[in-house]
């Protein structure tokens, strides 16, 4: 067993190595990402994806395969959280974190005002993901936060976790199906199923559809995680 002084010295040395490695790599980092790919996105991104927001364009068109597994990781995490916390729900008090006598009345009144605004803002971010900053993941997280506020307003609110997870799985399948549609229309998988020649107003249909599906999926997933944690307390 090492003494605490030598342990601290080893720790400091390890951190100095980490710091030194990063500092040594600062020489020419900006050119790592600011080369030809950036110019390609600015010259062709808008025409090929139909999205003003290039981040959404990359996420839902060029790197759609990546985004599918991003959504899949969230689904796996939700399943894991439920599996870890599912044992003996019955003997626990589901109201532990939202005890009415500990939540101030001012917070409850204010939450009633904020809840619809937050939900509408989340939907706005989801629907405008191709025009303004945002998209399915960000808007879904906002909508899930609004639902979390709902638990403070109504402390007897009951949620059927199984039904939510089933809806989430169906939504994930729908995302994969929409992503695979381009296999039949453009004979390439995982891209926009509307060809760029059809015009931008038709390409936007695909972007909004996928953004709404991803947004709903993320909102349901985070809602499930909240509920699992709320029910776990004693």
């Amino acid at each position: 067993m090492l003494s605490s002084v030598s342990r601290k010295l080893i720790l400091i040395a390890a951190m100095a190595v980490v710091f030194g490695l990063f500092a040594a790599s600062l020489i020419d980092l900006a050119s790592l990402y600011n080369d030809a790919t950036k110019d390609y996105f600015f010259e062709h991104g808008f025409e090929e994806t139909g999205s003003n927001n290039l981040v959404t364009g990359i996420l839902l068109d060029y790197r759609l395969f990546d985004s599918l597994f991003e959504a899949g990781i969230l689904l796996v995490a939700v399943s894991g959280v439920i599996w870890v916390s599912k044992h003996d729900f019955a003997d626990k008090n589901p109201n532990f974190m939202i005890d009415k006598y500990k939540t101030p009345d001012l917070f409850i009144s204010f939450a009633r005002l904020v809840y619809p605004l937050l939900l509408a803002f989340g939907l706005y971010i989801i629907l405008n993901g191709h025009l303004s900053p945002g998209g399915g993941f960000q808007g879904g997280a906002l909508a899930a936060t609004a639902i979390l506020i709902l638990y403070f307003i109504d402390k007897n609110k009951e949620t059927d976790i199984k039904r939510i997870v089933t809806i989430e799985k169906v939504l994930y399948l729908a995302i994969i199906l929409v992503a695979l549609l381009s296999l039949f229309t453009r004979s390439t998988a995982f891209t926009n199923f509307v060809a760029p020649a059809a015009g931008r107003q038709w390409q936007v249909v695909y972007l909004v559809t996928l953004n709404v599906l991803i947004g709903l999926k993320v909102a349901f997933g985070l809602w499930t995680i909240f509920t699992a944690f709320l029910k776990e307390g004693r």
Binding site: Y33, F41, G57, E70, A77, S85, F137, I225, E232
Partner: peptide, 25 residues
């Protein structure tokens, strides 16, 4: 450059998932 931003969006979702699972454990 939009590419690192799009990559990090994936990273944020993974971070949230890992945090949620670790907290439940």
């Amino acid at each position: 450059n939009p590419l690192p931003t799009a990559l990090i969006l994936t990273g944020i979702v993974v971070a949230v998932s890992v945090t949620a699972f670790a907290l439940s454990l």
